[in-house]
């Protein structure tokens, strides 16, 4: 621990059950000040529960939670002045317009920057005059995002904030997070999309069944990832099978399909290049695949 003098978030061995469901089962999470921290896990792994604990909405059954130097359960209202939150499933008041919601949330938090708000409305291409009941899921998400991004909170808690956004808006979002990072603010970004986390985060914690299974920088976690490659070459593909770091090879004449440890990608591409690459697509593995591969049946079964 102690990557920075003070941690913005420090969760130690937190347990939280809902009846028989163990949503958090000894979760550890440390987010240093000023970092963008990816909080990765498949659906149902406890990300939302952890964020609700951080917000003081849920009281943990056991374990320690520190947020911005305070106790989120006891000091909720004072701590909340310093953070902004975007829920995973945004529901808004149907009869109130998006613009009104953004302003209201800003005021409830203690003020927001009017210029930044208008700028964000433009960048996210949101019509603030529409009643919330007419917004699609993506647009509701934009409302909550703009409200959070327009604040000058030290800490942003974002729970799968891009799940309803199209790729264009996803890019705008990533740009916004970069700006926030440049301002030295802290972000906890929960997600189940590895690519998004890779694009944004300094450090990542991976959670499964309510427990942290990996934590570290992306480089440190690189050994976990494999890239799927489909390639078409002008000469028949040879020599792939048996190469270190290459898995699940399927070769059909000029076509080949395989997975490669991301750390070995460079070597493999060099091997392919002399064969005359006509087309190549690579796709990063989904998080679910990653878990299935690393945790085997017991990951799949639960």
């Amino acid at each position: 621990m102690g990557t920075s003098p003070q941690a913005a978030i420090e969760i130690t061995a937190v347990h939280k059950s809902f009846g028989v469901t163990k949503a958090l089962d000894g979760l550890d999470l440390t987010v240093a000040e000023g970092e963008v921290h990816g909080f990765l896990g498949p659906n149902g792994s406890g990300k939302t529960t952890a964020i609700r604990v951080l917000l003081g909405l849920l009281r943990p059954d056991a374990g320690q939670v520190r947020l911005l130097g305070g106790d989120p359960w006891r000091d909720a209202d004072t701590l909340h002045r310093r953070l902004a939150y975007v829920p995973g499933d945004v529901t808004l008041w149907p009869g109130i317009t998006g613009g009104e919601v953004i302003d209201l949330l800003g005021r409830l938090r203690g003020g927001a920057d009017r210029r930044r708000r208008d700028d964000l409305l433009e960048r996210f291409d949101l019509d603030p005059r529409k009643k919330a009941r007419t917004y699609s899921k993506g647009n509701r998400q934009k409302v909550a995002l703009i409200a959070a991004l327009a604040s000058d909170a030290e800490l942003l808690l974002l729970d799968e904030p891009t799940s309803g956004l199209d790729p264009l808006m996803e890019a705008v979002f990533q740009q916004c997070v970069h700006e926030i990072k440049d301002q030295g603010r802290t972000v906890l970004l929960s997600s189940h999309i590895l690519a998004e986390v890779e694009a944004l985060c300094d450090r990542v914690s991976i959670i499964r069944l309510g427990r942290t299974v990996e934590t570290g920088t992306l480089g440190e976690l690189r050994h976990l990832t494999r890239t799927s490659i489909a390639v078409e070459t002008s000469r028949p593909v040879t020599g792939l099978t048996g190469m270190a770091g290459v898995h699940d090879v399927v070769i059909a004449d000029h076509h080949a399909r395989f997975d490669v440890d991301t750390a070995r990608l460079d070597t493999v591409i060099r091997e392919l290049a002399p064969l005359g690459v006509r087309s190549l697509t690579s796709s990063p593995p989904t998080l679910e695949e990653l878990f299935l591969r690393h945790y085997g049946e017991d990951g799949a079964a639960s």
Binding site: W93, G95, I96, T97, G99, E100, V101, I102, D103, L104, R107, L108, D127, P128, R129, K130, K131, T134
Partner: peptide
Amino acid sequence: ATRLGRAQASAVLRGPYALAWRLQRG
């Protein structure tokens, strides 16, 4: 088409009381 509403919140809509009354006035 559905009528458009305000682009910005009025000065009144600024706290939990105002919000509750706004939601329940109808």
